[in-house]
Simulated assay, not measured.
Amino acid sequence: MNYTDLYYSDLTAVQKCIPNLSELKNSKIFITGATGLIGSCIVDFLLNLNDTTDAKNVIYIGSLSTDDAEGRFGKVLEREDIKYIEYNALKEITFDIAFDYIIHAASLASPELYVTKPVETMLCNLMGLQKLLEYCCKKGVKRILYISSSEVYGKKENNEPYKIDEYGYLDILGNRASYPSAKRASETLCASYASEYGIDVMIVRPGHIYGPTATPGDKRASSQFFRDVIGGSDIIMKSAGSQLRSYCYVVDCASAILTVMLNGKVCFPYNIANTDSNITIRELAETISRCSGKKVVFENPSDSEKKAFNMMDNSCLDSTELYNLGWKGEFDSESGISHTYQIMNCI
């Protein structure tokens, strides 16, 4: 991760987008999946918040190993306001800390893994979440936020943005059904714990998130496009790219998640999407192409690649409920894509 002045500037810029941000002051916040695309940006935001305000929060980062944490955060781990916790969603919880907030961002989130590791994909979501919800019951955690996915919606017939109560067809026995099925079941588990045990659970459904915090192993199209051009190659597209998506710069996504955590309603699903960033996959590739000076090249996908494709032609999200909380995205598609390229390329 390149900690450039532009990245820090972006993290500071979105502070104003989060209503009641001062309520986080002096909190202990645990982020699982803290080395991933979204989780690591939330960590960076909270550390920057400590640096630029009197927030005085302590951030606990959960990841599989110290090597993962050090590989992502480096010398940042030497700070006094950040603590490492070994966390594996498939193993029992061994730590005993009175967190104020938990943000559950841990998940297998690379399309090829939905096909090659479907068992782990499902269990990581369900078992990991269940263990954390039990932890909240025992330790009296103020609030837990679960990061779900727009893939819970499945495929519908019309091309209107998905509202929070619109669920289309999902082939539960399909090649990549492990991920959306696990996310659907996990949301039901959240609602069940809220109803039966009174746990304060928040749910967000991010759209297609991109940014400089993507991990090297992230195989999502947006991440691959950026890696291609940073590596000096043209962008390789394996489809016509006509699918419409709600893309969102990861820094905006982080501010939206914290907005919901502080201001949202319990067990109410909030779509995370920036209305200024609804573009097709091809438009995403062409914008990255303009930033980098590289070409967009089309190739036929392999059979294994086809199995991992998201079959939703239009996965735009209606984020009315998020905007009603007072949030607004800071970066449209042009600025978010440009900043991602500049940060990754250290410009």
Rank of each mutant, 00 (worst) to 15 (best):
27 S>P: 08
27 S>C: 10
28 K>C: 04
29 I>G: 07
30 F>S: 01
30 F>E: 04
31 I>G: 00
31 I>M: 05
32 T>E: 03
33 G>L: 02
35 T>K: 07
36 G>C: 08
36 G>T: 06
36 G>E: 10
37 L>K: 10
37 L>D: 00
37 L>G: 00
39 G>L: 09
41 C>S: 09
41 C>N: 10
43 V>Q: 10
44 D>T: 03
45 F>D: 02
46 L>N: 08
51 D>H: 05
52 T>S: 14
52 T>R: 15
53 T>N: 03
53 T>Y: 04
55 A>T: 06
55 A>W: 01
56 K>D: 07
56 K>T: 00
56 K>I: 00
57 N>G: 02
57 N>L: 11
59 I>D: 08
60 Y>H: 09
60 Y>Q: 09
61 I>D: 03
61 I>E: 04
62 G>W: 04
66 T>F: 13
67 D>T: 15
68 D>N: 14
69 A>P: 13
71 G>Y: 02
73 F>G: 08
75 K>V: 07
75 K>L: 15
75 K>Q: 13
80 E>D: 14
80 E>Q: 12
80 E>A: 09
80 E>H: 02
80 E>S: 12
81 D>N: 13
81 D>W: 10
83 K>W: 06
88 N>F: 04
89 A>H: 02
91 K>R: 13
91 K>P: 01
91 K>Q: 12
92 E>A: 10
92 E>V: 12
94 T>D: 12
94 T>N: 12
95 F>M: 09
97 I>Y: 01
97 I>C: 04
98 A>K: 13
98 A>I: 00
99 F>S: 01
99 F>Y: 13
99 F>L: 06
100 D>P: 14
100 D>W: 11
100 D>I: 12
101 Y>T: 14
101 Y>P: 11
101 Y>D: 06
102 I>D: 14
103 I>W: 12
103 I>R: 14
104 H>G: 02
106 A>Y: 06
107 S>D: 05
108 L>Q: 06
108 L>V: 07
109 A>P: 05
111 P>K: 12
114 Y>E: 06
117 K>L: 13
117 K>I: 04
118 P>W: 11
119 V>Y: 12
120 E>T: 11
121 T>I: 10
